Amino acid sequence: MDALHVGDMDIAYAKVLSTGDDLLLMKLMERSGPTVDQLSNEITDEVLHFIAQCLVEQNLFDLCLSWIQQLADLVMENGPNILGIPAKIMNELLLNLNEYFLTMVAPEDWEGATPDQLLDQLASAWGIDLHHFEK
């Protein structure tokens, strides 16, 4: 958390990710807010993988949604390859966002794009057909 105080998000996230402590990572994510644009591609990949896994937990959705909103904004403004996200992580993120959208309701106080809008935006930008997620 000391690196967060001096403003080096990449170092702060690298240190927390190296511990394997999911609770500490969630605290850092809450404290820093979405910082996708301040992280290296490697750290971004790890954080997005974590977010994809957390999407299936209702109590973590608010945290994840703000990061996905920032990701969608970056991708829409700068193109689909801006962060060099591997296809595996893109698919996992979209699959779990799709699962969330089908089974849960977005928080009432959410002011950004709806989960289905984010899903559509990212899938479209990344050229991923959402129909292959349907069962």
Rank of each mutant, 00 (worst) to 15 (best):
D10L: 02
I11Q: 01
I11M: 02
A12K: 02
A12P: 08
Y13Q: 03
A14G: 09
A14M: 10
K15P: 07
K15C: 12
V16E: 09
L17R: 09
L17W: 10
S18C: 12
S18P: 08
T19A: 07
T19L: 06
T19C: 07
G20S: 10
D21G: 04
D21N: 15
D21Y: 03
D22R: 12
L23F: 08
L23K: 15
L23D: 12
L23V: 12
L24F: 06
L24P: 08
L25M: 13
L25P: 07
L25W: 08
L25E: 08
M26I: 13
M26E: 15
K27A: 14
K27Q: 15
K27C: 11
L28W: 03
L28P: 02
M29K: 09
E30L: 13
E30H: 15
E30F: 14
E30T: 10
R31D: 14
R31S: 15
S32I: 01
G33R: 07
P34M: 04
P34I: 03
P34R: 03
P34F: 04
T35P: 04
T35Q: 15
V36P: 02
V36L: 05
V36W: 01
V36A: 00
D37P: 00
D37I: 04
Q38N: 06
Q38R: 05
Q38I: 02
Q38F: 00
S40Y: 00
S40N: 00
S40Q: 04
S40V: 01
